[in-house]
Each structure stands twice: as structure tokens, then as C-alpha cells.
Design a protein around this nucleic acid. Structure first.
Length: 335
DNA sequence: ACCTAAATTAGAACTTGACC
DNA sequence: GGTCAAGTTCTAATTTAGGT
């Protein structure tokens, strides 16, 4: 039986800092809505902190996540599970109660384009869960390379709001100089393979999802790198990206912000450059998944503020489905 | 190293105005 | 109306930047 070397990185990022950041992000949406477009997104914000109809609470009602890799056996997730936290050189152990966790019927969700629906019915935005994520890989080619680390963070915060794990690629890691992840760190029996991890990942995201809601996964250069990689890895393991997952790429958001700044020379829009631009300190080693997720969370907050984006406008104008990756959406110059 | 989208560049096609 | 130059628009090709 494989034991997953993964963590809910509460020990890495103290809960207080998570709450501070996430609350400030929601507050920025709230502030924007008050100074910008009226009261619509104030309702959205209220849902983020107090839940749908006042019932939802991220720390009390959200399901804890099983993280013990059990292959594809879903029944394995309905037991109490021991989790081994492993963050760099630190290893701790804790227990997560996963009794009565519901299985989201992802496969039954009808594939519909909800972006316009959300724009028209702002209440639907209450049902959105926004998760920042990042992956580390053995290289650039989705055909020949593999994911070796993945980290996620639910911007609502609360208990188990972050998820991080190494992934066993079943091969050597040639680019340790980039992220510091070595072959010895991931090619171990206690590090889950992608096929073992995907059901856990689905469970985790499902545990953050609101009933009947949609998930928005945000990454930097998501369209060009993270999402295609994710699709390929899911495909290799005979899984599909759930149809209620929407994605947002922060790269075009950054370009938009920088362009509006009026600079003659196009400024850098890498995650590190954006961090510098906004004066966000790097906590930990760059190019480790959770560190980058931490950075992107703060950058995303500022980008949405600068662009005065509400959740509906973010979904309507900047989200995409996995099926849209690779399809050219180049705009023709009609000026 | 690979892949994608955005940005840039170059050239063709078209429009407009001046002049005879 | 015919011609030309200048300006504008459009398209395609190329370059750049971003992710590991």
C-alpha cells in the first residue's frame, strides 16, 4: 500500500497569513464593487465569507480531504486516513477525518458554457470556488516530460485550504537546478504516481467545491503550460478534466495591466517580475509549487484589483474550458 | 529543450484627396 | 475620369515571452 508524501501546507504557511491574504483578496473585490459596479459583487463577497443562504462555512462545513493514495479504489477514501506531511526536510504526521465525504458526480455534470450564464445571473458567482494552482515538471514537453509537484490553494482560506504533494514521475528528474526537486525526492514508493494522485486531487477540489457550484483554477501561463500538461497527465491515466472546472490564465491579465500602464517597452510579465512589480516578497524557494502558488495568490489579488474585475466579469471575459486549449482565439484587427 | 498566444513586422490591398 | 501619392487597413509571417 502506497503512502502519499503530500501535505496540506498549513505548517508551511501559518493559518493567520492565509486568512489575512484571502480576506484581503475578497475585501478587494468588495471594495471594487463598491467603488465600481454597484452592489452585485458585494453579494458575491458575502457568499465567500458567509456562504450560500448563510449555511456555508469554509472552516466548518467543508469536507476534509483524504490524502492516502489508494490507487483508483474510491472506497478507500471513506476511512480515517493518516497523512504524512512532507515539506522539504520537515516531516510531520496528522490525521484527517474523512467520514461521510460525498463523492461529486463529476462525470454526470452536463457540459454547458456557464460563463454567459454567470454574467447574466450574478447569484451563480456565489457558487464559484477559486483555486490558485501551480505544477513543477521534469521539462517543457508535455509529450515527454512529467509532473513532479503540484500545489493548490483555495482563496477562501479556512482549514485545509492548501494542498501540496510531490509526484513520482517514474523516471529521472533532469532539471533539478530549476526547482530543487531531485530524482531521489520523487522516485520513492511513498510518493504517489499521477494515476494514484488524480482521484485524490479530484476529491480535494470536490471538498472545496460548493454544492452545484463550479471551480475556477487559476495559474500563470495556464493556457500555455499548466493546463495542457494537466490535460495530458489526466489523459495518460484515463481521466478527464471534470467538466465543471474552468481555468483562468493570469498571464493575459498581467499583460492587460501592464499595457494600461502606458509603458513604451513591454514590461516583463513573468510571475517573478509581477511579484517585484507589486512588491510581494518571495517566501521560500522560487519554482517550488506552493511558493509560486503563494506568490500568484497575491499577484492575482492585485491584478483583479487593477483591472476592476468582479467574479462574473472574470469568468465571462477571462476563463476558458480545457477543450479550448490549443484552439486559436486570435483576434482580428477590426479597427 | 517544447508549445502557445501575444506582439511585432512586412507587404499587399484598399481608400482618399489632389491634380490635370 | 485617369493617375499618382499618401495614408489606412488587413493579413500572414516572424519574433518574443512565458511556463519547467
Amino acid at each position: 500500500m502506497r503512502r502519499a508524501a503530500m501535505c496540506f501546507s498549513l505548517s508551511q504557511f501559518p493559518r493567520c497569513s492565509v486568512h489575512t491574504l484571502t480576506n484581503s483578496w475578497w475585501q478587494s473585490f468588495h471594495h471594487i464593487s463598491r467603488i465600481g459596479r454597484g452592489s452585485i459583487s458585494s453579494k458575491v463577497l458575502a457568499s465567500g465569507k458567509h456562504g450560500l443562504n448563510g449555511r456555508y462555512n469554509s472552516t466548518e462545513n467543508r469536507q476534509a480531504l483524504p490524502t492516502k493514495a489508494e490507487g483508483k479504489n474510491k472506497a478507500a477514501f471513506s476511512r480515517k486516513t493518516t497523512i504524512r506531511h512532507e515539506i522539504l526536510d520537515e516531516t510531520t504526521t496528522s490525521k484527517v477525518d474523512i467520514y461521510n465525504s460525498e463523492v461529486t458526480e463529476i462525470g454526470c455534470t452536463k457540459y454547458v458554457d456557464i460563463r454567459q450564464t454567470i454574467a447574466e445571473n450574478k447569484d451563480l458567482a456565489k457558487l464559484m470556488t477559486i483555486i490558485i494552482f501551480d505544477i513543477e515538471t521534469t521539462g517543457f514537453s508535455r509529450e515527454h516530460e512529467r509532473i513532479i509537484e503540484i500545489a493548490l490553494r483555495d482563496l477562501h482560506g479556512g482549514e485545509n485550504s492548501t494542498f501540496q504533494t510531490l509526484v513520482n514521475p517514474g523516471r529521472s528528474v533532469p532539471n533539478s537546478h530549476i526547482h530543487g526537486i531531485t530524482t531521489g525526492m520523487v522516485n520513492r514508493p511513498d510518493v504517489p504516481r499521477m494515476g494514484d494522485l488524480i482521484p485524490i486531487l479530484l476529491r480535494y477540489v470536490g471538498s472545496r467545491q460548493k454544492p452545484g457550484g463550479y471551480v475556477v483554477l487559476v495559474a500563470h501561463n495556464a493556457r500555455g503550460f499548466d493546463v495542457p500538461f494537466l490535460i495530458k497527465e489526466f489523459s495518460r491515466c484515463s481521466f478527464d478534466i471534470p467538466p465543471n472546472w474552468l481555468f483562468v490564465d493570469t498571464l493575459p491579465l498581467a499583460r492587460e495591466v501592464m499595457k494600461s500602464g502606458g509603458a513604451k517597452v513591454p514590461p516583463k510579465v513573468s510571475l517573478q517580475a509581477l511579484g517585484q512589480h507589486y512588491g510581494i516578497p518571495l517566501v521560500g524557494s522560487a519554482h517550488r509549487a506552493m511558493v509560486d502558488v503563494h506568490m500568484l495568490s497575491a499577484v492575482f489579488q492585485r491584478l483583479t484589483f487593477d483591472l476592476k474585475l468582479t467574479i462574473p466579469s472574470l469568468i465571462e471575459g477571462h476563463s476558458f474550458w480545457p477543450s479550448e486549449v490549443g484552439s486559436s482565439k486570435k483576434k482580428k484587427n477590426t479597427a
